[in-house]
């Protein structure tokens, strides 16, 4: 479903600030795979997400989605097949527009936008039933401006908007990191539910190791622009945090230096 082959990216090449962000990344997701990505700050997780979404283009390498090469395709064209939720709850929705208008924008993701009404009665019915799944009562606040919602509510709405058109790939970029623990748990639960319902091929970056272990069927660990560890479905079921720490020490010959990675 998603293939990254030999992806390289260097920032500020030829200057003293040169940084190898991605170093020969190869990754293959089969349909229905849910891969969690962990790694310390600066490991290249977000850069990799941006390569897939098209916000950045690789210096070398090929990105393939659903059998189509998309390496050179601009972000807005690629996002037909890609649903995204960002870390910042403000980033995924338009604050001065109403809930139903935001949903209408997401709904037109994979069709050409024309002069049809964005919200009609048929769509409203679909929006209502989709919102009900969130269990937050948002279906009764159709005409509320999204800017008035709490961070958790906005993130739940972003998640719904990213998933309800069944994109080929779902990218979650630390989408629970900016929320308080109870809200983060709610979003984690909704993520699991929506991904399972849609059988979505998903890539999720997280700082929270427990979350990385609990969710998904595969796990990869990144460090210094490389994928240093890839754990498959069979092994992931018995995985624990100490296992991960030990693996890291094994590979890198040093202790994992991120408290944040542990505590999330």
């Amino acid at each position: 479903m998603l293939k990254l082959e030999g992806i390289n990216k260097i920032f500020n090449e030829g200057t003293p600030d040169e940084k190898i962000a991605l170093d020969n990344i190869n990754l293959h997701l089969s349909p229905g795979d849910f891969v969690t990505v962990i790694g310390s700050n600066g490991a290249g997780k977000s850069t990799m997400m941006n390569m897939i979404s098209g916000a950045l283009t690789p210096d070398f390498g090929v990105v393939t989605i659903d059998g189509k090469e998309v390496t050179k395709l601009p972000e807005y064209k690629r996002s037909q097949f890609i649903g995204r939720v960002f870390q910042d709850p403000m980033a995924g929705t338009a604050p001065s527009m109403t809930i139903e208008e935001n949903l209408a924008i997401a709904y037109s993701r994979n069709a050409k936008r024309g002069l049809r009404r964005g919200v009609n009665s048929k769509r409203r019915e679909f929006f209502r039933s989709s919102l009900e799944k969130l269990g937050l009562g948002l279906e009764n606040r159709f005409n509320a401006k999204v800017g008035l919602l709490s961070g958790g509510e906005r993130q739940a709405l972003s998640l719904l908007m990213a998933t309800f058109t069944k994109p080929a790939i779902l990218l979650l970029d630390e989408h629970t990191a900016a929320l308080d623990p109870s809200r983060a748990e709610l979003i984690t639960r909704l993520t699991k539910q929506l991904v399972e319902e849609g059988n979505l091929t998903t890539l999720m970056v997280t700082h929270n190791m427990q979350q990385a272990i609990d969710l998904g069927n595969r796990l990869i660990m990144m460090d210094k622009g490389q994928i240093i560890l890839s754990i498959d479905e069979r092994k992931k079921q018995q995985l624990s945090i100490p296992d991960l720490m030990a693996e890291f020490e094994n590979i890198r010959g040093e202790k994992m230096n991120s408290d944040r990675a542990l505590l999330g």
């Binding site: 979404s53 972000e75 807005y76 064209k77 690629r78 996002s79 037909q80 890609i82 649903g83 995204r84 960002f86 403000m90 980033a91 995924g92 929705t93 338009a94 604050p95 001065s96 527009m97 208008e101 935001n102 924008i105 997401a106 037109s108 993701r109 994979n110 936008r113 908007m161 990213a162």
Partner: peptide, 16 residues
């Protein structure tokens, strides 16, 4: 309207 409100968001919903 979304372009004026949140460019990043509307790009992620395949709008030019």
């Amino acid at each position: 309207r979304a372009t004026g409100d949140n460019k990043r968001m509307i790009r992620s919903f395949s709008a030019n």
